[in-house]
Design a protein around this nucleic acid. Structure first.
Lengths: 177, 177
DNA sequence: AAGTCTCCATACATTACTGTATGTTTCGAT
DNA sequence: ATCGAAACATACAGTAATGTATGGAGACTT
């Protein structure tokens, strides 16, 4: 309703900034400038920088978790879930994902947020593979390899060329099968 | 011979610092402190911070390239090269590798250094797969997936538990076969 | 023995932040 | 209409860095 800002507004802008400019841009003064207000606003909503960082990570964690659940429930008959999942993530732009993980290499709070998400995702993939009748050991190993591949794809930060998409997707599915 | 420092000394310490504390610690004042000298020394050997960064990346690039060549020539009959390579990299501590890649997400110079190394490694894996008689398309796709897995493993920054090593290695080789 | 070059120290000016203190506006409830 | 809280501005002190200017100590040459 108003032109005033809420903490949520700061967090949304925070995630945008994180994705676009990286964690080194998560500073009170520059952020205030792009928000069109002074740091007075910032320090009203957040005790200090690290409180803002913590809230930002919590915010991201919720979003990332929601996405997992959405994927979980993305319908489709059980057999097609993995294919859908792979198609989705290996064509996505993972800018924010990348930025958070970059941050996590230097910030303990970010690191534990990332680890929590990793456990959930890995467990989910593993469960998909178990549903296909693989043994626990093999399911775990293949889930790990697939998830590594995802992390590597994200890290590479460049889309798969159109010409290679089908082949690569086949190879990924071959790992699972 | 003397207790004086060379540019090389600064670069070696730079890589150590990069691995241990990340790129955010690559600053003149803290580095000088750990070197036991003043910034006067630093600014004698390097024009400014970004000149130091550039030299550091060049240094890393040479080392990383050397390692590739070493792997290339790591003897073993052709058939066993890939297995040796995978055994080696998926058990290594990749702290420096990680630190450089983290840096690369925020620094253009670091990014192009990383991309150059990536091209070489990926090409090498691809050539290994071609030697095994795979088609160009498939070899390329599988090389990509394997290299993604490596990047993801590096990014995860935790060793494979002893109990899972054999299984995971088998799964990685299964991708290639 | 003097001069020169290399390597380093010290001191200074500058920049980009953080956090605090205090004052000002805006808004909703009464 | 006004009171109080929420949202913001302004001004200040402090910190951690950068880069520069200048001078000094040691070794190497001649």
């Amino acid at each position: 309703m108003t032109d005033q800002l809420s903490a949520r507004d700061w967090l949304d802008q925070g995630l945008r900034t994180l994705a676009e400019k990286g964690f080194t841009a998560l500073k009170a003064e520059p952020l205030s400038k792009t928000m069109g207000v002074s740091r007075g606003s910032f320090y009203w909503h957040f005790a200090d920088i690290s409180a803002f960082h913590a809230a930002l990570l919590q915010h991201w964690r919720e979003i990332a978790t929601e996405q997992i659940i959405a994927t979980l429930e993305s319908g489709a008959n059980k057999g097609e879930r993995l294919r859908l999942l792979l198609e989705r993530v290996f064509t996505a732009k993972l800018t924010l994902e990348n930025a958070v993980r970059t941050w996590a290499t230097l910030n303990p709070a970010a690191r534990s947020a990332v680890q929590a998400i990793d456990r959930r995702r890995l467990g989910y993939i593993e469960s998909l593979l178990m549903e296909q009748g693989l043994s626990a050991d093999v399911a775990r190993a293949r889930a790990q390899v697939l998830y590594w591949a995802f992390l590597g794809f994200a890290r590479s930060d460049k889309p798969v060329p159109q010409s290679a998409r089908v082949t690569i997707l086949e190879e990924l599915l071959r790992i699972a099968r």
